[in-house]
């Protein structure tokens, strides 16, 4: 058995795992930071909504769709100049985060928009009848009501980001995906491949169960 896993270097695996977690955490943070307001804006400016702005909604939609239609592997390469401008490097964890955020933000924003649309319109009407400002309606009524949906959206986005981090390995980002490609694939070290895949699988399972638990915790229906 030990013979079979002879290529597996625990130190190397550990470093790659930490890199993956750093990429995931960093990119998820910025994705939520940018995606949540973008999702709210998409919702508010959408058809028949409180702040309907046809032109702005169409512009945002085209932008979001454009970024989403770009395969992530292409986005990674296309963004290299911008990434260097932002972080000073296109390599490592720092170099991976800008394309990860650019790839996941539009996706997450659409999920937020959908979660907000799920909120009963009566809630908006009741808030308006109470004399709430648009900001109050969003912060005090819509976001709390959509919280389970938004948590589910964060979970799905996190899992998507895990697979994106693996792809980022192609352009020298490091992490478990990088390990799988460089050793597992290019050097035919099947044992490394198995270990990295197993670790990615465990990571996704953990993320999903944390997300599910939070959704249940915050659902009052």
């Amino acid at each position: 058995m030990n013979e079979f896993f002879s290529n597996v270097d625990p130190g190397e695996i550990w470093l790659a795992t930490v890199d993956t977690l750093l990429m995931l955490g960093g990119s998820l943070l910025f994705t939520v930071l940018f995606g949540l307001p973008l999702g709210v804006l998409l919702f508010l400016t959408g058809p028949r909504q409180m702040f309907e702005r046809r032109g702005l909604y169409r512009l945002l939609s085209v932008l979001v769709n454009a970024l989403r239609s770009l395969p992530f592997i292409i986005l990674l390469i296309v963004m290299i100049p911008l990434t260097v401008l932002l972080t000073g490097t296109s390599l490592g964890v720092a170099g991976a985060i800008p394309p990860l955020v650019a790839g996941a933000t539009p996706f997450f924003a659409r999920l937020v928009e959908t979660a907000l649309r799920e909120v009963d319109r009566g809630i908006i009407e009741a808030s308006q009848a109470m004399g709430a400002t648009t900001r109050q309606i969003v912060v005090d009524a819509l976001l709390p009501e959509a919280r389970p949906g938004i948590i589910a959206a964060i979970t799905i986005t996190a899992i998507t980001l895990v697979s994106y981090t693996a792809m980022a390995g192609v352009v020298g980002a490091g992490g478990l995906g990088d390990l799988a490609i460089r050793f597992g694939y290019q050097r035919f070290q099947t044992d490394v491949m198995i270990v990295t895949v197993a670790l990615l699988l465990v990571l996704v399972q953990i993320l999903q169960s944390i997300g599910d638990r939070l959704v249940v915790h915050f659902s009052r229906r």
Partner: peptide
């Protein structure tokens, strides 16, 4: 003006994420 006019609805339109007390307190907090 709307704060001086109360309104109730067919489907109640209560916030499912807030307790009964917090729902009642909402217009005052706003």
């Amino acid at each position: 003006f709307r704060r001086r006019v109360g309104m109730i609805f067919q489907h109640f339109n209560l916030l499912s994420s807030k307790t009964v007390a917090d729902n009642i307190a909402m217009p005052l907090q706003l």
